[in-house]
Design a protein around this nucleic acid. Sequence first.
DNA 1: GTCTATATGCCGATAGAC
DNA 2: GTCTATCGGCATATAGAC
Lengths: 221, 221
Amino acid sequence: MKESASKTDHKSSLDDPVKPRQRNALKKRDRILSAALDVFSVYGLHGASMDQIAAVADVSKANLFYYSKSKEHLYLSVLESLLDDWLEPLTLFSIEQEPAQALRHYVRTKLEIARDHPAESRLFCMEIVQGAPLLNKTLSTSLRNLVKDKSTVIQHWIDSGKIRSISPMHLIFSIWATTQHYSDFSAQVEAVTGKTLADKEFFNTTLANLERLLVDSILTN
Amino acid sequence: MKESASKTDHKSSLDDPVKPRQRNALKKRDRILSAALDVFSVYGLHGASMDQIAAVADVSKANLFYYSKSKEHLYLSVLESLLDDWLEPLTLFSIEQEPAQALRHYVRTKLEIARDHPAESRLFCMEIVQGAPLLNKTLSTSLRNLVKDKSTVIQHWIDSGKIRSISPMHLIFSIWATTQHYSDFSAQVEAVTGKTLADKEFFNTTLANLERLLVDSILTN
DNA sequence: GTCTATATGCCGATAGAC
DNA sequence: GTCTATCGGCATATAGAC
């Protein structure tokens, strides 16, 4: 997060006109983080090898170790660099908003993220399933406070009669669980339906159903 | 699944009166499967080592290889031995049932399984997150058919006006996602709430909220 | 900063005695 | 069936030239 994005900020492209070779256009540090994300998210911390990551990032393995002093350190860097972005959508909740609109917007955003950033989603999923050995501290401080904070907002909506009575925390958990399911378990979803969130119609159907289940059902009408 | 349970079925205990050392009371094959489940579910296929599993199962590593010819083979055995039990609850759905009761029972059962068999849940989770390289065939045949079958049942309930209109498949996905969330992401849930499903009151609150969100909301009243 | 070796250790798997 | 000993390979990490 911190220093990873700055460093060599000399003019970034004298090179060929913005070629779609996305990763190769990035600066080395970013290319490495991006490659590490892709590989870790598929094979996990232990299943991934530094050779693989070096190959994907298009750097030599030795060079990779020049940029990050160990495999675990690289893994942690990836997690950290993603964490803020990952939690950001929830921070937008505020009391002034209309609950219907705020909740619908949140569900939609989370589902869009599930569609557009499956690697991030899977990486967090694997980390947490394994007991979050590296993220535990963050979870029980930042995340805990964030959730408590936003639960208060939801509780406020309940108290003012705008939505039905429900446990705010469980509502948040349910939104996370259902939306992330479509990226984390996409192998299963695809095996069963033949579709992915990348399919526009499937995305819309999914969103409509989740909104009905998670939002419409708790609105007072 | 097949032969793993039979084999040496001579009298199983002349030994001390049913001592709580659960695993050591089991026959060797079962002890190995049980140990493998525990270790694989925490560290994943690649993160787990045969030494670890041997230690937990209380057999020598060489002996472990006598019983299963490779690490991957062992991993597959574990998955296969669990699969039927894992899918069983969904098979119980039938048209004759009252939807309210059937759905509530299913949600409760899934949440009980999440509480009582977290290792199984996590193992499947990790396997599927990584793209289900070993289960893909099963998913796109058995599971696919099962879900289609049970979707028909739910659709029938909708058509006869017993529940509101909703996509049966997305409803099933949502039930899976939310219930399994409490075991697969228990590290996160615990970091935020301080509670686990093992806590009786937390279990009841969770169940009540899920029933409200997933069942009550689609009942016609 | 980047490269070509290479050290080092762990782990899956086997050999072979008992 | 169970053990001890060990092979062989792969992967993390480093040394050291350029």
